[in-house]
Simulated scan of single mutants.
Amino acid sequence: MLNQTKTELRSLLIKQRRSLSEKDWKEKSDRICQNLKNNPLFQQATTILSYFSFRQEPDLTLLLSNTPKTWGFPRCVEQSLTWHCWQPGDANHTNHYGIIEPDANLPMLKSSEIDLILVPSVACDHQGYRLGYGGGFYDRMLSLPEWNLIPTVGIIFDFAYLNSLPIDSWDKPLNAVCTESKFIVSNR
């Protein structure tokens, strides 16, 4: 896979992810949620940043019900992400990328309030590097001093957990990766 560019790898893995049947996608997503729920990093967190599933990313909505946790979801604002408190029933809309976002009027969260960031990923590797969609939103955010000490977990399906990924100087490794079969602390 190292011989492929990020663009080629991204295309291949998104195609593979989108080929999952609805049943497989849901079952794998639910197992990811269970692996997260069983992990101390998740259990100890009170305020967690998550994402709305896009292009058949793992769906984490199972985590949102019957929980005392505060949830934050991103809005793309120019080249940055802003984070807003959101819970089921709150307003949201679809942005120009086709991604669901919380309503802009919902309360914003600051980095100092966050205990854990669940990072949507196309792929992750053993060193904790992730392949995103190429926009750099998470890499820019995680490179800022106020965000880079908050624990991060890449969320992917097993087939997207690779030995290594092509990386660039701006790529920021994650602390851990969660798939439907395991929770892995990164080797770095």
Rank of each mutant, 00 (worst) to 15 (best):
L9N: 02
L12A: 13
L13M: 14
L13S: 03
L13H: 08
I14S: 02
I14H: 04
I14E: 05
K15T: 15
Q16G: 07
L20K: 02
S21H: 09
S21G: 08
E22C: 04
W25A: 01
W25P: 00
W25T: 05
K26W: 10
K26N: 04
E27P: 07
K28T: 08
S29K: 04
S29W: 09
S29T: 06
D30R: 13
R31T: 08
I32M: 11
N35I: 08
L36I: 10
K37F: 14
K37Q: 15
N39L: 09
P40K: 05
P40Q: 09
L41Q: 03
Q43I: 11
Q44L: 09
Q44E: 13
Q44M: 10
Q44A: 06
A45D: 11
A45K: 12
T46R: 05
T47R: 06
L49D: 05
S50G: 06
Y51H: 06
F52E: 10
S53M: 07
Q56T: 14
E57Q: 06
D59E: 08
L60H: 00
L60P: 02
L62H: 03
L63R: 10
L63T: 05
L64I: 11
L64R: 07
L64N: 02
S65I: 09
N66H: 15
T67D: 08
K69C: 06
K69S: 04
K69L: 09
T70L: 08
W71T: 01
W71A: 00
G72C: 06
G72Q: 04
G72T: 01
F73M: 07
R75N: 03
C76R: 01
C76P: 02
E78K: 14
Q79H: 13
S80V: 13
L81Q: 05
L81Y: 04
T82D: 01
W83K: 00
C85E: 15
Q87D: 12
G89C: 06
A91K: 04
N92I: 12
N92T: 13
N95M: 13
N95V: 15
H96M: 14
I99D: 01
I100Y: 02
E101F: 04
P102K: 08
A104T: 02
A104F: 06
N105W: 11
P107G: 05
P107E: 04
M108F: 12
M108I: 13
L109M: 08
L109V: 10
K110Y: 15
S112N: 11
E113P: 08
E113T: 10
D115A: 11
L116D: 01
I117K: 02
L118R: 00
P120V: 13
P120G: 03
S121Y: 12
C124D: 08
D125W: 11
Y129A: 09
R130D: 05
G132F: 14
G136P: 11
G136D: 10
Y138E: 05
